[in-house]
Design a protein around this nucleic acid. Structure first.
Lengths: 345, 345
DNA sequence: TGAATTTACGAAATCGATTGCGTGAAATTG
DNA sequence: CAATTTCACGCAATCGATTTCGTAAATTCA
């Protein structure tokens, strides 16, 4: 009610006028340009502070064609893994003076394209993307990249050459998870995998298959499942399918914790003894692992670190000295918990 | 490697030149202005499409002083409740043609202020804020509001008059949770509450106290705890404190699920029978409730709906017909699960 | 048919910060 | 002391879309 007059923002022109100098000088003073005298700089800063001057990022962006905004597209932000990744991105970005703008693809390629358009219109400085589950055509990104805006893919990356990416060693992780079950004495291990469009699930599966073979066991296609979203329902569904088999597996490697938790719950409800009858290991090391009973073994996925690394990549690309390429996957490791530990320590 | 020349974006000037009309006409045509002929509009749209024209949101923002961006500040985006709320905001915002930019305060007032500055510089159209835990001085928001940018507070709101907010009936929810425990036969109910700076925790506690009194029981300050962040560690710590008491409570109402889960886990580990010896109910209805054993009773908190409602409020304020005020709290309800159900159905 | 509208569009200013090019004055050099 | 450099700063264009103020041409009205 009081003085609700929309106070006009004060600009460098206001400062210039008051100090009897030119706007250019004010601008340079504020940006600590070398050609401006120290006293002038001081005076400008002081007044700017007094008058509560706030730079207009929009104007700056228009002129420089850089928005100081990093766009990020993920499927759903309210998944533990992705929200933690975003948290990492936001932290690292803030340190570098960037803001983060988010968009959800809802795992829908069409929406992904729309997001891309919207973020392009905003002239984001760079883009961090985790693909929608079924994205297997990447032309929309190509178009984006042509306008010179760096794109860094995380986790769910396209099958393309010459792109910037931050990933983990999915093959190795899949191998390690399976090896862990084998070490626990499992002889017939099922795999709950994700969409075959996503390289990362393919890799995990390959790791699984390789580990099986290395143990002298012939992989059985019958016990390799593929779910598109690996959500709770599908986890339960695959668990039911497993129980309905003649030769019930004695181990399950599930490519994500959401589905694994659901499967675990279903199995327990059916009276299956975990890990004695079926040993289970998930993927991601979501918080839920430590709360579900029995605690769920998993593969630790450095979500936050991944987000931070992606920002580093972005910064690297934003500077001219872009030394692309070096794809060094982040470290993962098996987190052993009750759901898979047949051999007590 | 191929044609990596940074293609210059095409502008309305390019379109204007090619069509031998003025940029103003192009602009109006694209915005479906009434004063432009139908054929001209068609022609412009067609060419714009062919040439792959993308509006420069930045330029538009500068001119109109509206960014079509909604800023959102929360403590940590990787909390189930908040990430779901943000998901709701993003969905509703997208439908209205807005993008969402996020910032994390990390529950630190200083960071919250920095976020505010950054978002102001970007000239966000509006702001949606959930306060940092310890924020009890609101002058930084006042300053922001003076520049005419609407702010809608969600969940953790300031103790101020005349603000836009989206909340739940925390008093009622606290009352209901406590009443539920009383109905289950609890006689001595402890409360794990949050920061006293936050009205919402105060309200929940008041609901708790009122319910206790209504049942003819005198509230005991000894069993009312206050945690600043209500995280896992504090949940465990408060559980330990409870067990160390002479007169151990037979019920606990915990103001958030993260702490409640941790407390539950601790209690189970200590051999306490849940719900027979201690009945427990949390708050938020996080996904974890259905996975922890025994399943955790909770208060359903409509996170997504809250986000969507906040955007509606924003839209309302962005139009002139701002009918402020009508603070109608969203609905909550008790979700009964094993952790509190002494009386089997 | 002359006057009043309506239709369809253009010229140019504007939003606020940045920046290439210049310039006068002081400082340095030979 | 003349010739250069170095300093410190101003002018004006620029980024791309929007918008106010006009205006010529087409249409309608009396």
């Amino acid at each position: 009610m009081s003085s609700d007059q929309k106070k006009k923002d004060i600009t460098i022109y206001d400062l210039a006028e008051e100090l009897k100098i030119s706007p250019s000088t004010v601008s340079r003073a504020l940006n600590d340009h070398f050609s401006i005298g120290i006293d002038t700089k001081e005076a400008v800063r002081k007044l700017a502070n007094e008058k509560g001057y706030r730079p207009n990022g929009i104007a700056s962006s228009l002129r420089t064609n850089k928005s100081k905004i990093i766009g990020i597209i993920v499927s759903w932000i309210n998944r533990p893994f992705l929200s933690t990744l975003i948290a990492g991105v936001e932290d690292a970005a803030k340190d570098a003076g960037y803001q983060v703008i988010i968009a959800q693809s809802h795992d829908d390629v069409t929406v992904e394209k729309q997001n891309l358009k919207a973020l392009h219109a905003l002239r984001v400085s760079a883009l961090i993307v985790s693909l929608a589950m079924e994205t297997n055509d990447y032309s929309h990104f190509e178009q984006f990249r042509k306008s010179g805006i760096p794109i860094v893919f995380v986790d769910r990356i396209p099958k393309l050459e010459n792109i910037s990416q931050v990933i983990i060693d999915n093959f190795g992780a899949g191998y390690a998870a399976t090896k862990h079950l084998l070490d626990q004495g499992c002889k017939r291990i099922a795999h709950f995998g994700g969409s075959r469009f996503q390289a990362l699930y393919e890799e995990r599966m390959l790791g699984y298959i390789t580990a099986i073979k290395d143990a002298g066991i012939e992989p059985d296609p019958q016990i390799i499942f593929h779910a598109n979203f690996l959500n709770a329902e599908e986890g339960a569904r695959m668990a039911e399918a497993v129980l309905a088999m003649e030769k019930i597996p004695d181990g399950i490697f599930c490519a994500n914790d959401t589905a694994a938790s659901s499967a675990l719950k279903t199995l327990v409800q059916r009276g299956v003894k975990i890990p004695e009858e079926i040993a289970l290991i998930g993927f991601n090391n979501d918080p839920i692992c430590e709360f579900i009973e029995p605690n769920l073994s998993s593969i630790n996925h450095p979500a936050k670190e991944m987000g931070q690394t992606a920002v580093m990549k972005v910064l690297e690309l934003l500077n001219v000295d872009a030394n692309l390429g070096e794809v060094k996957p982040l470290e993962t490791y098996v987190v052993e918990r009750a759901s898979s530990m047949r051999k007590k320590l």
